[in-house]
């Protein structure tokens, strides 16, 4: 009897220890990643000032000039545009699916959303080249009197927005479904119409969740590489409009990692690009966190 209890105690202890170890391991992954990136990129930062690297737009790796501004701006433009397109679409369809639509429509839509979410990004890229790029160059750009190949910021943003829609939509569906029916009943019983209830109660209640869904979508869009790279043009100069080509940070890394060891400091510069990516994603996360905390202090 004593033996059994002892062995149980040991098993318990052992299992608990393993779980702790893996949790700690997961906690350290981002730290390890960041440390590696900082270590590698610090070589470039030794003889280039950080400020210069961020504000310069001259990119000539062969002569040792690394200006990251075009890439940072391209990245921001493409992702923010993508979110501006995808965000409202997701919000409206999430409200429709959870509040107005028949149960069966959601049952049909759920697998559609899941398939969209699971498609490999290269498919989105090819689709972008076949459909979006000519559409922009032949139909949309001429409307504004602009001539372009179609490989532009807006093409990247469009492809990206389609890619993040299932991702954001899934989170939003969960959020709206988690709001208790009774809260709606309370509002309706006070004489509010359904639309009034959605506008002043549901969206308000869902607001923190909506912000974090958008934040997650933004982070995801930010890191998306291959599909964007295929349609965005990849020209290393600051885009002067959405019908100009751009060159986002992930595309820069993916296009050049092959030759990074043959040019001095190039590897360090690409690591710095990766570090920028990481910092911006963390910044997005922090901002949406802060928004939620501020909101919850006021209402929740």
């Amino acid at each position: 009897m004593k033996g059994i209890i002892l062995s149980r105690k040991i098993k318990n202890k052992l299992n608990a220890t393993w779980m702790t170890i893996w949790t700690v391991f997961i906690f350290f992954i981002p730290l390890l990643l960041t440390a590696g990136l900082i270590l590698k990129s610090s070589i470039l930062l030794k003889d280039h000032s950080f400020f210069n690297l961020v504000t310069s737009s001259i990119w000539k790796p062969l002569s040792g000039e690394f200006g990251f501004l075009p890439f940072i701006i391209s990245s921001l433009l493409v992702t923010v545009l993508a979110l501006l397109i995808a965000g409202p679409v997701c919000l409206l369809s999430a409200i429709h699916l959870t509040q107005y639509a028949n149960r069966y429509i959601l049952q049909i839509m759920q697998p559609v959303i899941d398939i969209l979410a699971g498609l490999p990004s290269v498919i989105y890229g090819v689709w972008g080249i076949i459909i979006i790029v000519p559409f922009i160059s032949e139909k949309i750009a001429p409307l504004f009197g602009i001539q372009t190949s179609g490989y532009t910021i807006i093409s990247g943003a469009l492809v990206l927005s389609v890619m993040i829609i299932p991702f954001i939509l899934n989170i939003l569906l969960d959020i709206f479904n988690a709001i208790p029916k009774e809260l709606q009943e309370a509002s309706l019983s006070l004489g509010a119409s359904q639309w009034y209830t959605i506008k002043f109660v549901l969206i308000k209640k869902a607001f923190p969740g909506v912000v974090s869904a958008m934040g997650l979508g933004l982070s995801r869009a930010f890191g998306e590489t291959i599909a964007v790279l295929m349609v965005v043009g990849n020209v290393a100069s600051i885009p002067k409009g959405i019908f100009q080509p751009g060159y986002p940070l992930p595309a820069l890394i993916a296009n050049n990692y092959g030759e990074m060891l043959s040019i001095p400091l190039y590897d360090s510069a690409l690591m710095l690009a990766a570090l920028f990516l990481l910092i911006l994603v963390i910044a997005f996360n922090l901002i949406s966190r802060l928004l939620i905390i501020r909101y919850e202090k006021r209402f929740a």
């Binding site: 009774e182 309370a186 309706l188």
Partner: peptide, 16 residues
């Protein structure tokens, strides 16, 4: 509905 006040099993204050 305006002619009837409703109290539910748990209070559900509006988020305001």
């Amino acid at each position: 509905r305006k002619r009837m006040g409703l109290l539910s099993q748990r209070p559900y204050p509006l988020p305001m």
